[in-house]
Design a protein around this nucleic acid. Structure first.
Lengths: 254, 254
DNA sequence: TATTGACCTTTACGCAGCGTAAAGGTGTAG
DNA sequence: CTACACCTTTACGCTGCGTAAAGGTCAATA
């Protein structure tokens, strides 16, 4: 049985353009070219295309597939298990995304009467909160805490009063931190008060508090540009200052 | 505080190219252009960029983000909950992908001594098996079966002998079906034997057998081009013939 | 036999979100 | 006055094709 592009395309459920493209990049060449320049495929090409489509369904990129189908000696097992790792990473990334989106929706729903200005302030605040969530989870994974979904549940179940309280805490932290920063001393009373406020704020998001995780998050405030940008917005160096204060507060120098 | 492209880029952790691109597509325009043509951003632009990056983290496309940040009246809640649906779909797609990849790995590991030819045959067979998995799950969802992971576990736990048996069954089905097809009668003994073999084969993959699901799968053999391609490879019309036989076998006409 | 209409060919632009030159002007420190 | 680090615009490249456009080929029909 021989096939032209369209025949093969119909058979396999792909477009003729796809087949031409596969020819072009050398992933599936026709068995021969007839006198009119037509691409003619045979049974072997049908089988090969099946494999290609199978790997594509698994989400592999065409260049990887090319290696797989063109050299049978290629280590398929290794390629597949690497690919599996990537997929798992992708999924946990997706899980975080979904949690963040849900949190944002919940937050918005709870604050319907906000003015536009407040709304945007809320978004900004929310961004940092979301990042807390995200990195908080990573920290907890690092420290072996597996109650991953608790924090999200906690946020989603937060009442309006609790939400107001956490917002108030964030504002107080903000102003105390700004004052403390002027002293230049992370071990000062004000700075330590800021660290304590940060802890209180944090406990609204984390189901379990640990000094290690708190100190780790503080470090991330410095390492991650988005955090740094948020905290340093008015006074450059504030993120670093907060980290130092928290490290002293928790007694962790990492 | 005013920023040039690089300053703002450093602050927010994005490249200068990105900022120029955002200017180009009108998602984030600088506050003003100075006498030398430099882009100058102010505090408002910093804030807006934060929002943009936040939405980007949520996986929204730039044109959606543009709507969100440029018109505060835009229905953010709706956009977000639609986006949430998309993410959930994406995740279940990913779950299926991961299951398929794991099955393929497991299958490969169990058949290390295969010759290259057998390997490729195995891949082809695997393709249909995987599709069985995939659509089998969809059918079961349709019929309210929530034991989704059982089938995958079943395949992963399959012993070598079971794997051989299922392969043998597939081959027998193949030849019986080819013979039955010649009779042209889906109610013939041979055709009904083929349907029964198909049922036996199927029970290796599904934790629960139901006539409805079996009949539904048979219909998919006709509707989905990849199935059709596989079954019709030698005799066009075989998929349809098998469907008819199974519909008679199960007593379901849908 | 001529024509029609369904096929086939190559060439090439477009898509998202930038990365990465290239070619040139600007600002400031030594 | 010269480096040198910054800024600008223009434009090609990446993936995996979709979608014309401009033109040959093949089988059936008038």
């Amino acid at each position: 049985m021989e096939y032209t592009v369209q025949k093969l395309g119909m058979l396999a459920g792909v477009s003729t353009r796809t087949l031409r493209y596969y020819d072009e990049i050398g992933i599936l060449k026709p068995a021969r070219i007839n006198s009119s320049g037509y691409r003619i495929y045979g049974q072997a090409e049908v089988d090969k295309l099946q494999q290609i489509l199978f790997y594509k369904e698994l989400g592999l990129h065409l260049d990887k597939i090319k290696d797989l189908v063109n050299s049978p000696s290629f280590n398929a097992a290794k390629a597949l298990s690497e690919h599996r790792e990537q997929l798992l990473d992708k999924r946990s990334q997706l899980d975080r995304l979904i949690a963040n989106v849900e949190m944002t929706i919940a937050s918005n729903e709870g604050r319907i009467t906000m003015t536009d200005k407040e709304k945007f302030e809320g978004f900004k605040q929310k961004m940092v909160e979301d990042n807390e969530q995200k990195y908080g989870k990573e920290i907890r994974k690092k420290y072996g805490d597996n109650a991953i979904n608790n924090s999200n549940q906690k946020v989603l179940n937060m009442t309006q009063e609790q939400h107001d309280e956490v917002t108030r805490l964030a504002e107080e932290l903000h102003s105390v931190l700004a004052e403390a920063y002027k002293t230049g001393d992370p071990s000062s009373d004000l700075a330590q008060k800021a660290a304590d406020l940060h802890k209180q704020w944090l406990t609204y998001y984390w189901s379990e508090y640990s000094k290690e995780a708190h100190a780790g998050l503080a470090q991330m405030y410095v390492d991650d540009k988005r955090f740094t940008a948020y905290y340093d917005k008015e006074q450059p160096g504030t993120a670093e200052f907060l980290r130092d204060a928290i490290h002293i507060f928790t007694g962790m120098k990492q």
